[in-house]
Design a protein around this nucleic acid. Structure first.
Lengths: 135, 135
DNA sequence: TAATATTTGCAACAATGTTGCAATAAAAAT
DNA sequence: ATTTTTATTGCAACATTGTTGCAAATATTA
């Protein structure tokens, strides 16, 4: 268990540790609303600033899916604000509404004539593991 | 040139025609801000409602890319609010900032063990056609 | 433990999006 | 073509989301 805050040269405050703990609790990506619900007591402004700096330092990444409010998840590999080294697909379950990051071995590739592709982001939706089993 | 509004059983009002004309003018996807700038005179609330109903009727679709505000573009094929028949990739140029829909013949496929994928959305970023040529 | 740097919370504000309702305009029916 | 019906618009008011300056509090460094 490494110290994510110190690694990214961020001061270790109780609030940041608490937010980080929430991220670690979830295996899925979570929206602001979930973080707010899980914090016993929090300041809206501080939370915004915390999320912002976590994003800037590449501690977490943002997942925007069409029609959804933004979700956030811990970065698994060493990322910065702009460069992310993920090889995963963002998956939204249409049944339980969970958004998660799914690691894939063979990440699809794509070539477009006349375009130079630098990054690919894949958002899938369907039925997740636990919903498939639960039926 | 079909009548998109009538096709979708929407009243043909001057305002809706104007908004539709703006969408037709652009080959790219556009954010709210661009629509607002292009409208000579408009009511904020009516615009929100217009976008909402255009989305509901499948006249336009929303494109959410990480870090971006939402973009909107006309649907090319016959779509509804939930089901879109696009075979295109959303492309964001990191140079000119344009977001566009790029039709592809071979749309990548993806299989995930334990997941049932129903829809795939692909967001690419890099350098677009005109920026590549302009250099 | 003191000095310095960073973070927090407040107040105030800006931007974005929503709702009820009366006036208005479009579509359907006569 | 004119009336009736239905849908849209704009206003006021509000809800939500996100931002900024600044002083107090806290964390880090020396």
């Amino acid at each position: 268990m490494t110290n994510l805050l110190k690694d990214k040269k961020l001061s270790e405050t109780p609030f940041r540790k608490e937010v980080l703990a929430i991220f670690k609790n979830y295996k899925t990506a979570i929206p602001m609303a979930v973080i707010e619900r899980d914090l016993k007591d929090y300041n809206r402004i501080t939370l915004y600033r915390t999320i912002k700096i976590f994003l800037e330092k590449g501690l977490i990444h943002e997942i925007s899916m069409t029609g959804e409010s933004a979700n956030y998840a811990l970065c698994l590999s060493d990322c910065s604000a702009t460069v992310h080294h993920h090889q995963h697909v963002h998956f939204k379950c249409t049944q339980c509404e969970m958004v998660s990051c799914v690691e894939v071995t063979a990440f699809p590739s794509l070539q477009l004539p006349d375009y130079k592709i630098e990054q690919l982001e894949i958002q899938a939706s369907g039925i997740c593991k636990s919903c498939l089993q639960g039926e």
